[in-house]
Simulated assay, not measured.
Amino acid sequence: MAQDTKQRLLDAGLEMLLRHGYNDLGVQALLTATNTPKGSFYHYFPSKEAFALELIECYMVEVHRGLDATLGDRSLPPLARVRRFFELTQEKYREEGYLGCMLGGVGQELSGVNEVFRAKIEQCFNAIAERIAGCLEEARQRGDLPADFASRRMADLLVNCWEGAALRTRLRRDPTSLQAMLDFYFAAATG
């Protein structure tokens, strides 16, 4: 029962953080949405900041699950696996109404005013880029990318471009920016 309450708070919090951002994530609204007493929230989370940091961890579990499923799919060549990860992420964005990446949204909102969140979100982006770099390196070694292709640097660039396109997609509520970015990146990388 206790874990159910904590999980209910986290599940609702993930959606609310994505939809409203950190500053508009009201603890009282969360408690009302989950029918949870205030004391229960503070039993599991010492502060709103601690709660949001745990939400980021939950989000990253989902991201790593997606990376595992796509980058680990050896039935596809490495570049197709990387692209597949982003295409599935784009599909998730569509299902959520094109709200974009929670990391990007919270990072834009808080990175200039909260060092804890800045460092945490940078750590998350680095973890994603590191996983992608491994797959890009596999593609380079297979000859699918130029011999001098800098896999880690190009993985960072891919994540950076994706985050910018995700923001534009959120602003427009339209996936065109994401698709154009993927098409451009993979054409440039292999050309």
Rank of each mutant, 00 (worst) to 15 (best):
G104M: 12
S75I: 08
T36H: 01
L99C: 13
V82C: 14
A150N: 13
G72Y: 00
A52M: 12
G191Y: 05
D24L: 00
H64N: 15
T169K: 07
S111C: 02
F51G: 01
A12C: 01
R152G: 03
L17N: 04
V159I: 02
R94L: 02
A12S: 00
E96S: 14
E91S: 09
E96T: 15
L158Q: 02
V61E: 15
A155Q: 03
V113F: 07
G97H: 11
G105T: 13
T5A: 04
M102W: 07
L182N: 03
M60D: 14
F149H: 06
A165F: 06
G191T: 09
A189I: 05
R8N: 11
F186A: 00
M16C: 11
V113L: 05
V159T: 02
A29K: 01
Y98I: 15
S75M: 08
R168S: 14
L99T: 13
A188W: 04
N126W: 08
W162V: 10
Q123L: 12
L25H: 03
L99I: 12
R8C: 08
L67N: 10
C58Y: 10
H64M: 15
T34F: 00
D148S: 08
L158M: 04
S75E: 15
F51T: 07
G100Q: 13
T5G: 04
P37F: 02
E57I: 01
T176L: 09
R94A: 02
F41I: 13
A50I: 14
I121Q: 14
A166S: 15
R74P: 04
D183I: 02
V61W: 12
G104W: 09
D11L: 00
R84S: 12
G105L: 13
K48V: 08
R142F: 06
A155N: 03
C135E: 15
Q141A: 12
M60W: 10
F149L: 09
K120P: 11
T89Q: 13
Y98H: 15
R142C: 10
R94F: 05
E122V: 14
R153P: 03
H43Q: 13
M102E: 03
T70R: 04
Y98R: 14
T190P: 00
L171N: 07
L88V: 06
D68C: 01
G107R: 03
F86Q: 06
P37L: 05
E54F: 00
